[in-house]
Computed example of a mutant assay.
Amino acid sequence: MTERRWKVVVIGAGGAQAQAMLAGAARGTDVSGWLAVDLRWRPEALAATQALGISTIEEDPLADPGKLRELTASAEIVANFAGPYYRTGTLVLDAAIDTRTHYLDICDDADATLPMLDPVRTAAAEEAGVTALVGMGSSPGTTNILIRAAVDHLGPVENVDISWTVDVDDVANAALRHFWHCFNLVDPDGTTHPVSTWEDLEQRTVDFPGTVGRQVVVRLAHPEPLTIPRFLPVKSCGNFGAVTPYESMVTAWGLAHAVDPQRTEVSEATLDAAVAVFSHYRDTRPATARLGSGLQIDVHTGGNGLRFASGAPTPMEDATGIPAAAGLLMLQEGKVRDVGVIAPEVLSPADFFTTLRRVSTGGGGLGLYRLENGKTGERLRIRDLIRLDTATES
């Protein structure tokens, strides 16, 4: 690739996940050649970004295709943090492919992931020599790479079951719109379903470790069930999630069901009003202990295999932004070997977790266990599974 003005251009850089990503990237590399773009900078986000030595501009490149193409053409890599991805994902990705610019996002919308992985779009990226890494956050992102590590160890498996929770205090308005969107289940062929009645929601109870504890989770649309069987020898993958505490989940579902565009015609003003109702609930409800985020991933055949589990008060922006920083450094340093549009499970687990240590503040609390007849068994060492010593040297 010919030399570009910017090593990385970040679109939507003022958001919480992007801010966590930029801070993480600065811990792991020199970011003085990066450009951060946002539609309207919050003063504190602008100051924090500039303090890292990153150049900043305020504009909306998504409103002008010519401006967007000019921006992607100026970069070696473009990182798209401007959601919702069912509106912005293919727009920025196509501009990146057209200008032969590598691409990364944290897309967690299932119905956006499918068109991004469309064979025609993937072939165009391959022809352009572009690596486009979609969904490189926490879930999807870290989840996919953990599953890859487990499958590398176990061999082909029948099932992957993913369960996660987020704390209601982490559900900002943009995240709420995405979470509502997850109630619209998406089939592998792209068919999108209306929000189910409460009685028809597929529910299960999961015991998360740490601060999270026992929670009810429901089947939700997410990219992993669509990408994991595509890229790995896994027959099926399910995704279950929740907002905690439980009353927050019920409140979110009720509003999503009431204003579901798949079920009834609603105006943008009605959607905005529903968001305002949930925001008022979130911001005025009686204070409770923070539960944080929970994750459980079972990789198995007939209930036997491996289980990853964590539960900690880690903010959602860090859980999402820091893995994205690792993905960007891997792209920048030539540690992503595939071209085309790819999902995170294509990455080398050893290379990813080696890079993640450079950008992380430490901690995390993720445990690895044997899964025996669907129950947690002997604790194992993640370092033995991933074998960090096999990572590519920088």
Rank of each mutant, 00 (worst) to 15 (best):
D200N: 15
A79S: 14
A324R: 03
P84N: 07
T101K: 03
G374P: 10
A326V: 03
I77T: 06
L39N: 09
T122H: 15
A324S: 15
E126K: 14
R69Y: 03
L371A: 09
V166Q: 05
A36Y: 04
G137S: 05
A252V: 13
A256M: 00
V168T: 05
A273G: 11
T99C: 13
H280T: 14
V166E: 02
R383K: 11
D38E: 12
G66L: 10
Q50V: 11
V218H: 13
T90Y: 00
P188H: 10
L114P: 01
L371E: 05
K235V: 10
R381W: 02
A128L: 08
A128R: 09
D389L: 09
Y85H: 05
G302W: 09
A25L: 15
P43W: 12
A273Q: 11
V218D: 03
L201G: 04
D64Q: 11
P233D: 12
T288E: 13
N304C: 08
A18I: 08
K335S: 08
D283S: 13
W41I: 10
A26V: 03
P115S: 05
G66C: 10
P61M: 12
A51F: 10
L331Y: 06
G364K: 09
A20F: 07
A95P: 01
E268R: 12
A312D: 13
P209T: 10
A172H: 10
A343L: 05
A149K: 02
D298K: 08
L220H: 00
F231I: 09
N184L: 00
R4N: 11
R379V: 11
A125H: 07
A25Q: 03
L176Q: 09
R370Y: 09
D38R: 01
A174N: 12
R357K: 13
M316T: 08
A63V: 07
L388V: 12
D318G: 00
A289D: 13
R204F: 07
L347Y: 03
D200R: 15
V186I: 13
P209H: 10
Q203L: 14
G367Q: 14
S293E: 08
P344F: 06
P140W: 02
A324V: 06
V157G: 01
E70Y: 01
A149I: 05
V216K: 14
R263N: 07
T301F: 11
E44S: 14
V78C: 08
L93E: 02
G327S: 05
A110L: 04
G89H: 01
Y369V: 11
T143H: 02
T320C: 06
L366R: 11
